[in-house]
Design a protein around this nucleic acid. Sequence first.
DNA 1: TTCACATTATGAACGTTGTTCAGCGAAGTC
DNA 2: GACTTCGCTGAACAACGTTCATAATGTGAA
Lengths: 205, 205
Amino acid sequence: MSTQTRREQEKEALRSLILDKARAIFVRDGYDQFNMRRLAAEIDYSPGTIYLHFANKAELFQCIVSESFAHLAQHLAKFGAESTRDPVAALKHSLRYYVDFGVRNPNDYRFAFMMERPPENGPSRIDPTFDGLRRSVRRCVEAGLFKTNDVDLATQTIWATIHGVTSLQIQKPSFPWVPQKKLIAQVIDAVVDGLARDDDKKGNG
Amino acid sequence: MSTQTRREQEKEALRSLILDKARAIFVRDGYDQFNMRRLAAEIDYSPGTIYLHFANKAELFQCIVSESFAHLAQHLAKFGAESTRDPVAALKHSLRYYVDFGVRNPNDYRFAFMMERPPENGPSRIDPTFDGLRRSVRRCVEAGLFKTNDVDLATQTIWATIHGVTSLQIQKPSFPWVPQKKLIAQVIDAVVDGLARDDDKKGNG
DNA sequence: TTCACATTATGAACGTTGTTCAGCGAAGTC
DNA sequence: GACTTCGCTGAACAACGTTCATAATGTGAA
């Protein structure tokens, strides 16, 4: 193994160590409790070292969250690609998966969709996630099951809706919610049924 | 006018000055750009003076945002109280007002519903807002226009939904949205129609 | 008028952040 | 063995929220 190669591997290993430890702190303590000095201490390096691998805190977080969302996007894409007899049921399945993902990974979800950040240039990180949803919705539209033919309008309506439940469950855990499963199911049913043609919307819940 | 009274008035005046200027900065530059030193500079007092009127930054913001939300709650309560022939149309009206309010007061809305803050003890600040919505929903339920009889389930479903549009419009202005008015109308129609009984849900959009 | 007190304002200072950078030592190269 | 390259250090900087000893000011009584 050349010196060059070994150096690159060691560099990559440290980068991974930083990412893993950062994720651990992030998940354990949340965004606000996270800071570069603590991270440095936990990996037994000086704060400056982190900046040899990541430009700043924001980029570091970007990397952490991208990993999580790659998984989400992958699953949503899978659901969207499935050719099924019942596209509406498949869509609802995707939506349940989406909400569950958010609720189970609140810190990732919060960072991706709920935090104030400078406007992104170029394709945003949410695109793959959104595309997975869009594909599921398109199947419904193409099957003539929705009132509207506007795929983007339908997708954005649905996305906005399920983002609503997801983010509120994350943000306001102390609110006197009805049981979470019930609420999530109701939101999904309501919005999808609301978009569906009247003659097709029974028996899909 | 007694000395005591005058002092209290002057104190109140300075408190108002702080609040007004803080609101101006908050609205102009957003939460992240806001800081106590800048606020102090803009009102020509030292930073310490602010702390004679507000315990800390969070409490100061609480006061600012409460003012805005008092207005929102007031309007929603008004809609909820109206006895109307068409409770569903009235509900949709409330929802449009809610979303418009959020989109027009993004910094207030963000602070109230989209920011990580320590869990609130006692009745939360969102209660009055939520109650206004709840009243509109209850009218629909009591008129037998919804599939469910669970007022809380229906209200929370609707709230989650419209919070979704509102927060995403605020949070992701650079996303390639369909026209905002169209999206908002679609979300409101979809969720309310989805909750409504099939035989009642035509002609309410 | 004078003096003691209460109130209000100050701004230096503290602790905590994210981030930078001159310099250090070890490893690699000739 | 001398020179270069590299990763790493940790002190230092700036910005922040917040505190506190001190000063300034006005008030009411003597």
